[in-house]
Design a protein around this nucleic acid. Sequence first.
DNA 1: TCAACAGTTTAGAATGATTCTAGGGATGAA
DNA 2: TTCATCCCTAGAATCATTCTAAACTGTTGA
Lengths: 141, 141
Amino acid sequence: MTENPSHNRPYSGVIARLKGAGLRPTRQRIALAKLLFEGENRHVTAEDLHGEARAAGVSVSLATIYNSLHQFTDAGLMREVVVEAGRSYFDTNTGDHHHFFHEDTGSLEDIPGDQINVSELPAAPAGKSVQRVDVIVRVSA
Amino acid sequence: MTENPSHNRPYSGVIARLKGAGLRPTRQRIALAKLLFEGENRHVTAEDLHGEARAAGVSVSLATIYNSLHQFTDAGLMREVVVEAGRSYFDTNTGDHHHFFHEDTGSLEDIPGDQINVSELPAAPAGKSVQRVDVIVRVSA
DNA sequence: TCAACAGTTTAGAATGATTCTAGGGATGAA
DNA sequence: TTCATCCCTAGAATCATTCTAAACTGTTGA
Ligand SMILES: [Mn+2]
Ligand SMILES: [Mn+2]
Ligand SMILES: [Zn+2]
Ligand SMILES: [Zn+2]
């Protein structure tokens, strides 16, 4: 019941989510969280989200878009995916999964964690621990 | 015998390599190729290589460093590795392998291709073909 | 209710890696 | 040696992202 809050109070779900992450539910964060977390999982760039916010009639500065995306990521609500030098994608899917990167369109597509298997991983170098394993399958026409 | 040309003519190996790639063996490209391809495989940023060239007494502009790195990559002599938004690493190892990325030092470490196994890869989306599969194991203290 | 402080937002400047421009220089086929 | 082609480079330009500093807002507890 934290998932798709299509109840009567349209903001409660998103507000609870922000509070749960230790973030004040400000007008900007609520609007962005609604765009990001209601509906399907998505991969967005800062510019993408800025455009969507504008289109939705919400006025938010680009600096706030970047701040929010990083705060959501630090809070574990999203993750950052790096596939191209020079552009960052933010992913609302924080579960175990990997990506197809479509080199010609610049878009990402999820590969569920159980549809890929990385084995025989060598141990992390002395004193280090593995933070994450990213598999990026680059495809193009 | 293309590998470590410690013969008497110190440039012949590198020159042959450049010609073989369809690149004119200019003074700058020869110097950079020597720094990059003689000795162990390496992961460098444009700034790294620029610094090394200067240290070696070779005057090369940063624009030429970028041009050369891309030309070497396009020619298949190197490959580009993306692990952090905002910075590109170029790798002299073009064989089958993956990477540890040390998040605290920003350095890359090879994982030989036979020490990691990616299986059950789903088929590439319709009409697309897989260009490359990158596995990045992010580690930190 | 509301003062007051900490947390937020933002316009605009600043950064930093990379790319572009355009003019002078080097290379190599003939 | 010639000459067309390919290269190199300083410096300007891009572009995504971050920073600054000042104005604003959410929260809290008197
Ligand atoms: Mn980040
Ligand atoms: Mn490139
Ligand atoms: Zn994803
Ligand atoms: Zn490598």
